[in-house]
Design a protein around this nucleic acid. Structure first.
Lengths: 348, 348
DNA sequence: ACGCGCACGGAAAGCGCTTACTGATCATGA
DNA sequence: TCATGATCAGTAAGCGCTTTCCGTGCGCGT
């Protein structure tokens, strides 16, 4: 603000004919105040439309209502879903959520932590995959340690290697493994994976899990049947195109995220391949709308909003030990029409 | 924060052997400081990992880096898309974005404004439709006026009746009118609308626009062919189901948002109706993914991210006059495969 | 050689709150 | 009746910064 004229505690005190201390006590009811004064103060406050300056409060109380939430891309339904849950929980505890969207920029992620440290945020929520990158882990770890050292709390959603933080962990690995198993049960023997950037822990975990599941059935993934793409629709499209270029041998495809799966579906269609008649397709996350694709997408459902709520709740709950807390969230394989037994002829 | 031990300006000053004032001057380079001192200060600051307390800064400077963003539901791709643009712009100007998600609760919306006033936010962005509700307009107007009176800036995205604020206005009405025209040109004569809650200005505008477009061709919308539903996927589903129950006479449906259209599509399909063979379907917004539906959705494309950027930019730019500024954003009709000429037999 | 102005650093007064601490006032028990 | 606590309101000292106002020390002109 620039123009003065903001109503202050002092103003309220004068209007009510009491001391600032009394006003503060009434407004926060932090001590007994005689009924008549209390009334006067309340009346003055409402008539002046007084709103406490939260910066001043933060300064005086040495604690703020701010919590920071950092995600890769608020435009991605996966993050949007989780943050939805965070917002629900936050508004129940009336916290001020400061949002950071990194757009995949690691530096910016670290910068956001610094900024939130500056805001004396009560907690920071790291939503989304960490990076498989030692330098980043080091730098981010340092920044977070500073924050934690001054009493901050950090909760991550997804695995963040190298960071010692509390976490809500979607079980990417076991979820992908179960998905693989389900596909094997459907009769598939030849698979391909449209994976995310190898630098993202989540991508690595899902790929590893899918391999696990196949391994249990004695099936291996041929290296040329694993293609990396960006963690979004177009990344899926590009990866699928590349896969087709290499020669598609699989009867079942696993896209590391639903968003990628959408792109994969489009690519397959453009190449005249039918899902699931020619090839089955699976995703991961169960973001809204994939049930409305044609065909509806088989995927591993993660309770996104719930994940957000739990992360927020965990950050609010003071840890009892110094050990990092961990909550695991299971994914649930949801079979829809994008998967079917392989065509009798084998692959197209 | 609770544990003291936070590095303060004072600490840096001592470490550098200078006065706090000098440190402040160096860090904000707000005045000339001799090179050697500057070095010492900078060195001390980095070695202590100093981060200024933004609350203290806000207090001392009587201005903060916070901007507030209020939307209905961060989980909705429409809002997520706009906010994506907002975040981009914000991070370029390194502002701290405080997010509010009202979940359609009008009271909470007003409460958020109060909270942001408390944070002395530089600007508040109201993303999403206003309400056709005099009481709300009154209450919200009062709250915003207070905010503006103390130097705050408010920019709305979408029309907010009764509020005197700057705005970025997606041209809902003309967009819907053009869409209607395009459908008429395709040969349709019988229409139905799955509209949003009548309490939302955006819903009202889109419906009115569609009527405008039809009127130009001398076509009227039968009252029983307009059904209201919630502004989301399930609202569309429910509205379409109701429409079918009433007896579907239209050959072309207009859903007030893409999200609703997705639900409509599902409902039609469940009732054995094919799009576009039996009935054409159109939406509004062009959120990601609707181009990947089967059939891809005809809709009015709004540049969501751009809208977000412009709203943020407008809020940052100080207005020159007292008149409220307005920027209009045109939608663009995008014809996709969900629309086709009506079946020769008329409606199914 | 002297006085003047300029460049730069420090002291100190806030910004708007919270919260010991102090001091009245009043009711109680001996 | 008077000391003894409770109760409750006010005073004032910060919280961590910014910024105005001064004062110092230097270079310069004459």
């Amino acid at each position: 603000m620039s123009e003065r004229s903001l109503v202050t505690l002092e103003d309220v005190a004068q209007a009510a004919g009491v001391s600032p201390a009394t006003v503060s006590r009434v407004l926060n009811n932090t001590a007994a105040v005689r009924a008549d004064m209390r009334e006067r103060v309340l009346a003055a406050a409402t008539s002046l439309a007084y709103t406490p300056n939260s910066h001043a409060q933060a300064l005086a109380r040495a604690t703020s209502q701010v919590v920071g939430v950092i995600c890769h891309d608020i435009g991605d339904p996966y993050f949007a879903g989780i943050i939805r849950g965070v917002m629900r929980m936050a508004s129940e505890h009336d916290l001020h959520v400061t949002l950071g969207s990194t757009f995949g920029d690691q530096e910016r992620e670290i910068a956001y932590v610094g900024m939130m440290r500056g805001q004396r945020a009560r907690a920071i929520l790291l939503i989304g995959s960490g990076f498989e990158d030692a330098a980043w882990q080091e730098a981010m770890g340092r920044e977070l340690d500073r924050y934690v050292a001054t009493g901050g709390r950090v909760t991550a959603v997804s695995r963040h290697r190298g960071l010692h933080v509390d976490a809500v962990l979607p079980q990417n690995r076991t979820g992908a493994a179960e998905l693989a198993r389900a596909m094997v049960e459907l009769g598939h023997r030849e698979f391909a994976v449209l994976s995310g950037p190898a630098t993202l822990t989540t991508a690595a975990d899902r790929l590893a899990g899918f391999r696990d599941g196949l391994a249990r059935a004695g099936i291996e993934l041929r290296p040329d049947q694993v293609v990396e793409g960006a963690f979004n629709r177009d990344g899926g499209y590009a990866a699928a195109t590349e896969l087709i270029r290499r020669g598609l041998r699989a009867t079942c495809l696993f896209a590391a995220t639903d968003l990628m799966a959408v792109g994969v579906l489009a690519a397959l269609r453009n190449h005249g391949l039918s899902v699931p008649d020619d090839v089955s397709l699976t995703g991961f996350d169960d973001i809204p709308l994939v049930q409305d694709l044609t065909p509806p997408l088989t995927t591993v459902a993660l309770p996104l909003e719930e994940v957000g709520r739990r992360a927020m709740a965990m950050a609010l709950r003071r840890g009892t030990t110094t050990r990092n807390r961990v909550e695991r969230v299971q994914g649930r394989v949801v079979l829809r029409a994008s998967t079917a037994p392989p065509p009798p002829s084998g692959r197209p």
